[in-house]
Simulated scan of single mutants.
Amino acid sequence: MDRTEPNIVIRYCPRCGSPHFLPQKDHSFKCGSCEFHFFTNSAAAVAALIINEKKELLLTVRGIEPDKGMLDLPGGFVERNESAEEALIREVREELGLEIEDYRYFVSYPNEYVFSGFKVYTTDLAFICTVRDFQGMKAQDDISSFVFIKKEDVDYSKISGKSIRRMVQDFFNS
């Protein structure tokens, strides 16, 4: 049994505190006391596919759990009242200090992200991006470093998350 699943972790109604907060067949929870209905919908996240002049892909190294030390794409969760595009620009600036000049939607995949012992289901959206330049780029926020990788040098077993692996594979195969 996966102890990070919402129906295992969520035990009490967030409105009234009742223990009668029961999982439903539609991936929601409903309180038997106050009738509060809560859905565990997918959270949106963004990822940037950025290449340099040598056609190498920029990958970051995760500086925090989950998967600390594994390769990832720059990006992160879309915040409340933020568009995916705004999140993309913000995340790349926060993590690397880079300014995105142009971007285009590429592909999306579902993913599962376990944080604090709780499984969050995500929809990860990838964008192909160009940046103004790589001057002053540095690892910040929740990444420890970065690397540029050629298609033939990618070790997919070192990439965090199945959605990110698929995005990198799709990018190099497009």
Rank of each mutant, 00 (worst) to 15 (best):
V92A: 02
H27N: 13
K138D: 14
P14Q: 12
I128K: 11
F36D: 04
N173W: 01
I149P: 00
A43M: 10
E53A: 11
E5C: 11
Q135V: 02
Y105W: 11
D153I: 12
F29E: 06
C31T: 07
G136C: 08
L98F: 00
P74S: 12
E65L: 10
V46F: 03
Y156Q: 05
E35Q: 14
E101K: 14
H37W: 10
V61K: 12
V9L: 12
N41F: 05
M70E: 12
L71V: 10
F39S: 11
Q24L: 10
R93Q: 01
M1V: 14
D142L: 06
D133H: 09
I51Y: 07
R62N: 13
R165V: 14
C31D: 06
S42L: 08
P110H: 12
D170R: 15
E5M: 15
A126V: 10
L73N: 07
T40D: 08
E152D: 15
E53N: 14
G161D: 09
E101G: 03
E85P: 02
V131L: 05
G17M: 11
D102S: 08
H20M: 13
G97N: 02
A47I: 10
G32I: 06
D155L: 04
L58S: 10
G117Q: 07
S160G: 12
P74F: 07
E85K: 02
G117H: 03
S33M: 14
